[in-house]
Design a protein around this nucleic acid. Sequence first.
DNA 1: CGTACCGTTGAGGTGAGTCAAAGTAAGTGG
DNA 2: CCACTTACTTTGACTCACCTCAACGGTACG
Lengths: 248, 248
Amino acid sequence: MAELNVNKINGQTCCASTSCTMAKFARIANFALDDQMSYRCGCDFLSYDKGENIFLQNSPPTGIYCLQSGHVMLWHRDELGNDIGFRVAGAGDIVGHRAFFGEDPHAASAAALTNCVVCHLPKHMVTKLLEKYPILNKLFLRLLALDRGPPDSLLLRNTNLPVKMRLINLLLILKHSFAKKDCEDDTMVIVLPLYRKDISTMIAARHETVARAIKELKDDGLVYFRGRTVMIPDINRLTEVALEDDEV
Amino acid sequence: MAELNVNKINGQTCCASTSCTMAKFARIANFALDDQMSYRCGCDFLSYDKGENIFLQNSPPTGIYCLQSGHVMLWHRDELGNDIGFRVAGAGDIVGHRAFFGEDPHAASAAALTNCVVCHLPKHMVTKLLEKYPILNKLFLRLLALDRGPPDSLLLRNTNLPVKMRLINLLLILKHSFAKKDCEDDTMVIVLPLYRKDISTMIAARHETVARAIKELKDDGLVYFRGRTVMIPDINRLTEVALEDDEV
DNA sequence: CGTACCGTTGAGGTGAGTCAAAGTAAGTGG
DNA sequence: CCACTTACTTTGACTCACCTCAACGGTACG
């Protein structure tokens, strides 16, 4: 393999653009739904309580899901029984599209992290929508292409990075979805819908190790956890630490 | 996260179906190429020597690449300078489609493992093809959806599995592409176009660790390496070992 | 005021990384 | 055809981040 100049790839850009694409589709889809009564009939709005599963790993896909509200965790259970969380989806996001277009059983389960409302678009309806709005083909191609590519997952699952760094990267990614907008001072407050266990599945570590990493971050004065509330006094410093350590 | 019954997912089914889709596209694309002279003019056939790069990480995509012959390794260099190989593509396979449809710089580089010939389909041509053959939309959606999903990559990169097991899984996946058909006795012979270093990037380990794992497999009587030639006396036993250990 | 779950802390073991060195194969040029 | 270079491979010794197991503290809720 020849030499190569690798620029930093920040998780946030990935996530942001993916969300953007999905939100766009959501708008288009809703437009389509309102457009014809027949379409509206084909679309089910479903409510899920916290903890419920929207679909299960290994079950055949029946359509695609569009989140109206709430948050969903996508996770895969491997052969050893380890759970691997790889995405947190929020309002406007689409889930279940990979299995749908792959025409393969779901490779992951989708569990509601909070109460949520989901719009289920059954197969025949997706087909109709794609016919009526060819632009959707392009959008879905883009969505699949950007979804869970190397850079995003590698910041969190790359075991060359110590757990502490993977945790920082996770926070930097999740802050876009969960940071409270109304911070008086510079302190950034993030309210995660994730337990320690959920965090651990996302960064490929045990929950005990996550607890220890959290303690380290507190000792460093970088991040303070209280339950599922996270306080970051200086977000720039945290970003710097993430980049610094990457360069070592 | 609720209880869940997880069936075994074998790498081979994944890889096989993806290859199949790609080969199908290649046929369709070639048909299209012959169909109109204008199309043919827009398509460049390029030769690459072993070791050359077809495209580089972080460079903007210019089209998609369809392998006519030879083998290509897709690899990503992370922020720490670690190389991460995640796919070996062969004749009929498509590469570079993720960046192309994602409209993002390449997240990986493609390096020729052996001398190879590649058909480069520039953007305008892909657009034309998609218009002329709408079925291609569906094929590409399927290709992207199946490509590098959780199961495939997790068998190789999941650090809950020891290196030896990840190596076995890699062999079981690569045998579909590289096994010699003409084995007299039951011994399966695989000729990999991969150095130890390349293997190590694919299973998230160091090359020294790979060497030790290879030695262990030899001591177990499961697999014999001689350079890049791999001999597997009893492929069924190897598969069993892979499945057994998964269940522990 | 239990019960159940979540979270923290400690002790101990180990798989795999790191560093260093020697061995082997594959070209290259004289 | 043989030195010589270069790249690939193996082995050993050492270290450490993380896992495992186990116990205990905290908090929510009926």
